[in-house]
Design a protein around this nucleic acid. Structure first.
Lengths: 205, 205
DNA sequence: TCGTTGCGAAACTCAGGCGTATCGAAATTA
DNA sequence: TAATTTCGATACGCCTGAGTTTCGCAACGA
């Protein structure tokens, strides 16, 4: 029985530095947050930014894509708590979380990569979608389906189309809307506009 | 008075080949259409694809960005004719044009570049927005404003928000929607859903 | 015919980045 | 203390691609 016996036997030699590992991931996300695409990222720049030798990177990841996959996987997707009192309130909570995230440069840059480099790096996207996109999509779907069930939303509603309405509008605003932060009441205005419809009660088909 | 005196005096020597120029632009757009980002594009690949020497490129453009700016500037933005009979019909025409364009690989790749590389290549984007985005945006705005004026749309409608609703939804569908072509009736369904609202006549605020 | 300019092809220099190897120092186990 | 492994730093060979130069030929005006 040695002093250290937690789980697998610790191999001889100097242990790997967790600090270095974290610095590498952080440097990668930093550079992505400065607008670099995956192809512009260089291992040398990451090593330099992290204050680390290239060896330390290659000892852990065999190439750039593996590193980026891991780096993006660390991005959490903390969803806002939903009150559940009304569909309108929950939708506003979800969309307002999107609005706040769209104010962060890093989030915007990651979304850029997701939007444009999905075809070139399928492994990367697969994990990113599973980790970051799917939970949000599922939350939005649940709220909308509940609305249909409770009668707050039309019974014949196309749920997928409704999801595209909300997500697409917020995405569009963050990309092509007014520069700087999105207005604080944007989520509420989007939700009310979508729920009520552009025609108000003028159109009956 | 010489034989040739049309406008500026023709300089001595072999004239530049318009065919080569066209081949260079086409090759550039081809490569973009195959999913290449601006930074992945190489002058060598363009020259090779165009069947042209690098000299012939550098004689016309001083660097890659200038070439890409010119190449994207040649993309026309033919807007669909609008019947003007109803706002609903015109909206469907506009959105259906978006849907059809989203089916072309080249259009999707150009949009990818527009979405993700705007910050890195501001000159490129400035011209592209002016040439391709602005006309569509203006057409959509006109239709919506007309709808407000005629009473087909709510008088208190936020026009910019409405535009984001339509554009963002179509964009979202083309990027994250079902693989392959978008369904033929998508534009109509989006327009009717947005006009009527998700709540139907259930919500009065 | 002669001078000029454009053509494609090829060779060139230069910069940057990849992935590997080697170094002495540091951290750990035995 | 000895053996082992990682550390950051640095150098290395290699490749890609930018932008330039040179070459022999082609297309034009005079």
């Amino acid at each position: 029985m040695t002093i250290q016996d937690s789980g697998a036997a610790r191999p001889a030699g100097r242990p790997r530095s967790e600090k270095a590992e974290k610095a590498i991931i952080d440097a990668t996300l930093d550079l992505i947050g400065e607008g670099m695409g995956v192809s512009e990222l260089s291992i040398e720049a990451i090593a330099s930014r992290a204050g680390v030798g290239k060896t330390t990177i290659y000892r852990r990841w065999s190439n750039k894509e593996d590193l980026v996959v891991d780096a993006l996987s660390t991005l959490k997707a903390p969803l806002p708590p939903l009150s559940g009192t009304s569909v309108r309130d929950d939708l506003i909570s979800l969309l307002d979380a999107m609005r706040r995230e769209a104010g962060q440069a890093r989030t915007r840059c990651v979304m850029n990569i997701a939007m444009s480099e999905a075809d070139r790096y399928p492994r990367l996207m697969e994990r990113f979608v599973k980790r970051a996109v799917e939970p949000r999509r599922q939350a939005l779907r649940s709220v909308i389906e509940r609305g249909v069930a409770t009668g707050e939303l039309r019974p014949d509603l196309d749920v997928e189309l409704a999801m595209a309405l909300f997500s697409g509008t917020m995405m569009w605003q963050s990309k092509w809307g007014p520069a700087g932060d999105l207005p604080a009441d944007l989520a509420e205005r989007v939700v009310d506009t979508v729920l009520l419809g552009l025609a108000g009660d003028r159109v009956r088909r």
